[in-house]
């Protein structure tokens, strides 16, 4: 996973070019895979470190929410708390954000592993391996302000056009 600031910045950049509608849902979509799929696993492993008898399998289970075939139903599930007519667009923006998250994560290189993109249908792992796992730490201070600026300029432009 890349850091969450970079993921949110990519969401703002994307929406600055693609149109600002449902920016909040899309931005939340870009952090959703880590919030739902990584944070619970990290917390459970920490609890094991404190001596709690948590089975190893349980620490891996939330990881399915960081896979496309886990993200899609999660986005639909979350969209169900919105009003009926808005649900399809909200779910699409959540899932679009998740896919952008995956695209950024796939750029990374992990030792001997990749992302199981087709689970539960296949155990095939893949990543492009173009950047290190911490490369976004150096990019975040540049990309984050740029994305906010791009989004602000877009909102000004939209306001001028009425």
């Amino acid at each position: 996973m890349a850091d969450l600031v970079t993921h949110m910045a990519t969401a703002l950049l994307f929406k600055a070019f693609a149109g600002r509608k449902h920016t909040a849902s899309f931005t939340l979509g870009t952090v959703l895979p880590d919030l739902a799929g990584r944070v619970p696993g990290i917390v459970l492993v920490k609890l094991v470190g404190f001596g709690l008898p948590i089975p190893e399998g349980l620490t891996h289970a939330p990881g399915v929410l960081h896979m496309p075939f886990g993200m899609l139903p999660l986005c639909v599930l979350l969209a169900l708390v919105f009003p009926e007519l808005q649900r399809p667009k909200i779910a699409a923006n959540f899932f679009g954000g998740c896919m952008l998250h995956m695209a950024v994560d796939l750029l990374q290189h992990h030792t001997g592993t990749g992302y199981p993109l087709l689970f539960p249908f296949s155990s095939w792992h893949f990543e492009l391996g173009l950047i290190g796992t911490e490369a976004t730490v150096l990019l975040a201070p540049i990309v984050a302000p740029l994305s906010v600026l791009a989004w602000w300029l877009r909102s000004k432009w939209d306001a001028r056009r009425g």
Binding site: M1, D3, L4, V5, T6, H7, M8, T27, L28, V31, D34, L35, V39, T133, E134, T136, V137, A140
Partner: peptide, 12 residues
């Protein structure tokens, strides 16, 4: 990276 992600959590 952990610090940035914690900041990201707050922003989210």
């Amino acid at each position: 990276k952990v610090r940035l992600s914690l900041l990201g959590l707050v922003l989210a």
